[in-house]
Design a protein around this nucleic acid. Structure first.
Lengths: 150, 150
DNA sequence: CCTATAATGGTGCATATGCACGTATATGCA
DNA sequence: TGCATATACGTGCATATGCACCATTATAGG
């Protein structure tokens, strides 16, 4: 007899009821689509908005800095930056001191596009917050920051 | 003079401090990688585990049912199912009554793999929960469910 | 100075994600 | 019955995601 491991029905329920990964990922897809829609006419997606906005607040970070900040693989960052560079929204320059490092900076068109996106962001963010019970917000914030420390 | 919209420094701070989308997505990437590592030797990723486990608890759902459950685009679901079907972990059959509908069911190899993955899931889920302040958990749960209702 | 090691970033591959659009089937209404 | 509409699903496209592996540059230790 093959002793195929048996799948415990209680386990199935446990996963459905308590899997943190599933909850976060599912919410991530849902909220991502919502912001994507808000930025659609600017041909921006939620990820690009976040990245450009962070860039606006930081002095010429390296690719590595950015990947860390976004909790993203470095190689993913490299490729995603390329899309924005092609559109002229940011510029990528080698560091003058360290030949390994590349530094990323927002361009004027990038800044301009961000300014256009700002109102859409605010409206969507407020709408999302309204859907979340106010008492639950601080807990969510703290928990998400624990999962991906700033 | 071109009246290029100006990017308000206060806005930049506001986005960094309060963008729900960024927080959820960043945490999603981080936690996804963590579970991916736990399942790596089984050649499963976190998404596939979630999907197969949900399949184990549901009687032959349609592709649409599954996409809704996972808060995912229908066409993404179609394609992702294909990978698991190729590996024989699930079976896709046309509905006998409605020619448009396809129904998905877990196979024995799928069930067996899930049983192997179960302990890894539990250990990782517990570890993640330990990293989250206990008081923050219920709020996160409620908030994520509000963002992507079950 | 020279070499071992570390740090930084890129490529190839596979899968994941969503939208616009297309096809096939079912259903409601004249 | 016959057609308009709705529903379920698939394809083509572009981008996103991460891993294994590779190339280049910096740095520490002799």
């Amino acid at each position: 007899m093959a002793d195929t491991p048996v799948l415990d029905p209680n386990l199935i329920r446990e996963v459905g009821a308590s899997c943190v990964c599933m909850r976060v990922q599912r919410a991530g897809r849902a909220i991502g689509r919502r912001f994507d829609q808000a930025f659609r006419d600017l041909k921006l997606n939620n990820w690009q908005f976040t990245l450009l906005m962070w860039l606006a607040s930081t002095e010429a970070p390296s690719v590595n800095d950015m990947a860390t900040q976004m909790a993203m693989d470095r190689t993913t960052m490299t490729r995603n930056l390329r899309v924005l560079e092609r559109r002229g929204l940011l510029a990528i320059q080698p560091d003058t001191r360290d030949g390994r490092v590349k530094r990323v900076a927002l361009t004027d068109p990038g800044r301009s596009l961000l300014a256009q996106a700002a109102q859409r962001w605010r409206a969507t963010n407020e709408a999302v917050k309204r859907d979340i019970p106010a008492a639950a917000l601080p807990g969510m914030w703290e928990a998400l920051d624990a999962i991906a420390p700033t």
